[in-house]
Design a protein around this nucleic acid. Structure first.
Lengths: 264, 264
DNA sequence: CGTATGATTGACATATTTCAAGGTCTGTGG
DNA sequence: CCACAGACCTTGAAATATGTCAATCATACG
């Protein structure tokens, strides 16, 4: 079935891009069938990570990029005053390690939030292959560009948006990304703790907790521990002040009471 | 002197990468002399922009990346509730437009803060050339990676740091970047307004203004309108809680009064 | 089951924003 | 060259969103 010359491990090859449901989210987008083979040859599938296991830690030499196949990963740095700062949560189909190309060392650590399987792509090989396959090079540029764009968007969130807008955005982002991966848009498990969410969004845990209760009392979401159900999408969008990227900006955030003010 | 076949405009060619003092900050880093020629052939130098002139506006089709040659540029989006959000200030040697590769449209607008000259690099040509020149491809990956890394760092600033840390970081960042470009580390003009700074740092103008006075009263910087003089670097670093990237993290932020508390 | 960890809730503290006023440049046109 | 207008910046006082501290509660896990 697979005529690759270097059959090291059947399990590895079975999981290659061709048969991966994520291929349209991940690298192979826009890469032809033959080109895919060249790509597959360099991609390795690591043993799955257990919850809390590290994929790499800050300071590690960067040798590969990684794609999440299933599960989820958080990346974080430790600031010099010793506190953790989460830089991102990564879902299936998303790439990890792009921030390390520049310096050759990982500036962040990456830790599995649940049992997670990962594809490893040795970076030098990836560069070499993308040297031969324009579509792959282009795709890599696109992926990095998308990351930059997302970061800019997130900077706006942190710089200008209130706590409720941040949480709403966070939930919508998860919903959209999980939806794109074939999971439910409406109902999902949070694989990260409230602490992680707060940390990521630049808020205190208590604030996040209060917001969940407020959202729930307002009938917008239902939250039971880690399980989130989005009940009404539109209000959530309003709260997030969604900024549907790539759309002409018309003031859409007209009225709507500010989420039942303090909601005493 | 230049044997390029398509001599359209002498002025353009005179300004090519080879003679550009910024080449070690900009694309050509790590590109050999011959390779440089191929690169130069596609780089165009636009007429300088006047203050407040746009290089592109959000929604424009992306055709080129741009490098700042001299002057400075701000990039910003307008959120759907109509307020501007500045996503970055760009100094000589820095690239613009990386966030647009993904969608093909510029998600931000770019506006000159002063008279500014720009190199234009048609993106398709750039991709094609970097297909042939591994070092250029690598350099592009690195530049995008660096951008991602910087964004992550900035996210931490916005999410976790106090207003004084933000302004201190901002001043240090300008100082470092200007220094790398041959300008003074210690004394420079702010080409952006207080409003722009506040907007960028996620603060109110008034807060920025007060912080400048506080820093000045503490003898850390001297500020007279747009002219900033850094008097004492270390305290500024302490306030910023510098996170010297790529260094082993040891708590270095020990004591030092929190900038003469409220400084009544 | 009991313990530990994470989540929630309340009361209080505070950094930063908002509102309001006044001050200071800078460029323009007389 | 001067006067003026408008933008920009600074400062103070009051308001507020969010953080901090502390206690309780729920859940998961050994």
């Amino acid at each position: 079935m697979n005529n690759s010359p270097n059959v090291v491990d059947l399990k590895v090859l079975k999981q290659a891009c061709k048969n991966c449901g994520l291929s349209d989210l991940c690298l192979p987008l826009g890469v032809s069938a033959e080109e895919l083979e060249a790509l597959e040859r360099i991609i390795d599938r690591k043993r799955p990570l257990q919850r809390n296991e590290h994929l790499y830690v800050a300071g590690d030499r960067m040798t590969s990029l990684y794609a999440v196949r299933s599960g989820s990963v958080k990346t974080y740095t430790v600031t010099n005053d010793g506190q953790e700062q989460i830089t991102g949560f990564h879902l299936p189909g998303e790439l990890l390690g792009l921030d390390a190309i520049n310096g050759g060392l990982h500036p962040c650590s990456a830790k599995a939030l649940e049992t997670t399987s990962i594809c490893e792509m040795p970076f030098e090989a990836l560069e070499e292959v993308s040297q031969r396959i324009p579509a792959l090079q282009h795709q890599l540029f696109r992926i990095m560009s998308r990351e930059i764009q997302a970061d800019e968007h997130f900077m706006m969130l942190l710089g200008k948006k209130s706590s409720d807008a941040r949480l709403a955005f966070f939930l919508l982002s998860l919903s959209t990304r999980l939806g794109a991966r074939g999971f439910s848009h409406k109902e999902f498990y949070l694989t990260m703790s409230r602490n992680d969410i707060a940390n990521y969004l630049g808020l205190a845990v208590e604030t996040v907790s209060r917001l969940f209760t407020r959202f729930q009392n307002a009938g917008i979401v239902h939250v039971r521990r880690k399980l989130v159900t989005i009940e009404r999408l539109e209000p959530l969008r309003q709260i997030a002040g969604v900024h549907r990227i790539q759309e002409r900006c018309q003031p859409e955030n007209q009225d709507l009471p500010p989420l039942q003010p303090p909601l005493i």
